[in-house]
Each structure stands twice: as structure tokens, then as C-alpha cells.
Amino acid sequence: MQTLKTALSGKKVGESRDMVKLLRIQATETHLVEFDNVDTRFNDCTNWQVVMGGERILFSTRMHERFSEVKSGVLATITVCENAATASDSAMLESAKALMKILDGYPSFAALAAHPKRITD
């Protein structure tokens, strides 16, 4: 008769090493990028935001937005805000460009989790 051994992994229910609750990256001196509930296995997050000087400038609240969808949404924001003259559009454009610089350098959320300017606290 075969005996099965149960290995104690130390994992808790609802926790996975594939999940990053809050992924924060200092994009520029003034811009902080935050991704919530990043699932590196499925390459998506529940929402994201760009904060400048403590104020949320650019954000998304879509559920399960894939990495490629984040990129295409930011590109659309850049296209829309490039020719706009208002101060809020300029701030959104700056924030979108800071985020795009981060996204262009990494192919996925898993790679982004290893970003050298990641803030862990």
C-alpha cells in the first residue's frame, strides 16, 4: 500500500507567490506607478494608477486588465492628450509618458515585479 505524505508548504489559503498585492515603482523623480493585485501567472492586474506629488493623475479601475491592455490604453491616452492644451491634459500626458517608459522596458508584470526601482514596504 502506498503512503501519501503531505508536505507543509507554509502557504495560506488565498495567497500565492504568483500574486503581488501592490506593485509600486518610482517611474520618475515625481511619478509613482502602482498596480494592484498583480497576477504574474496570468499577466494581469485589477487596477493601476500614476501618482504625481501625492495626487492621482492617471488611473484605471478595470477588473483583470492584461499587461497588453494597459499598454494600449496608455498609448490611447498619449494620442488624445498630445494635442490638448489644458493643464490637466498636460499632467495626464506627462504621467502617461512616464508609465509608458516603464511598460516599454518590460515584457510582462512578472518582469516588472523585478524592476530595480520597485518600492517594497
Rank of each mutant, 00 (worst) to 15 (best):
A113M: 08
M63T: 10
R17L: 09
L58N: 03
N37V: 05
M1E: 08
C81N: 06
A84V: 00
V33R: 07
E55A: 08
E94A: 12
K12H: 09
L75F: 01
V38W: 04
D104K: 09
K101P: 04
R62V: 13
D89C: 11
G53T: 13
V33F: 09
A91E: 00
V74C: 07
Q49K: 15
L93E: 03
A111R: 11
E94I: 01
A84M: 10
R62K: 15
S88V: 04
D39V: 05
K5T: 10
F59Q: 13
L58T: 02
D39Y: 02
A91Q: 06
L75C: 00
F109G: 11
S95E: 03
D121Y: 12
A27K: 07
S95N: 03
L32V: 15
M92H: 01
A111Q: 13
R118V: 13
A98W: 00
L32W: 06
V13F: 03
S95L: 06
T120M: 11
A27F: 07
M92E: 02
Y106P: 05
S72I: 12
K12F: 07
V50Y: 12
F67H: 11
V70P: 09
M19C: 01
T61R: 15
E94F: 00
S9G: 12
P116D: 08
K71S: 08
A85L: 08
T28F: 14
L112K: 10
S88E: 03
N43P: 10
A76T: 09
D104V: 03
S16E: 10
F59W: 12
V38H: 08
L93S: 01
G14M: 05
I25D: 05
A111F: 11
L23H: 12
D44N: 14
S88A: 02
A110S: 13
V20W: 07
N83Y: 10
W48N: 11
G10Q: 11
T86Q: 00
K5S: 10
T46C: 12
L75Q: 02
V33A: 13
T79K: 11
E69I: 02
F67P: 12
A113N: 13
A98S: 08
E34C: 13
K97C: 05
M100S: 06
A113W: 09
E34H: 04
K97A: 06
H31W: 01
R41H: 15
K5V: 09
G73N: 14
A27Q: 08
N37E: 14
V13A: 07
T79I: 06
F35K: 12
K5M: 09
V51K: 12
T28A: 14
N37Q: 13
S72M: 07
D104Q: 12
T61E: 15
K12L: 11
K101A: 10
R41L: 15
R62G: 04
N47E: 15
S88D: 01
R66Y: 12
T61N: 15
C81V: 03
V50H: 08
A76G: 05
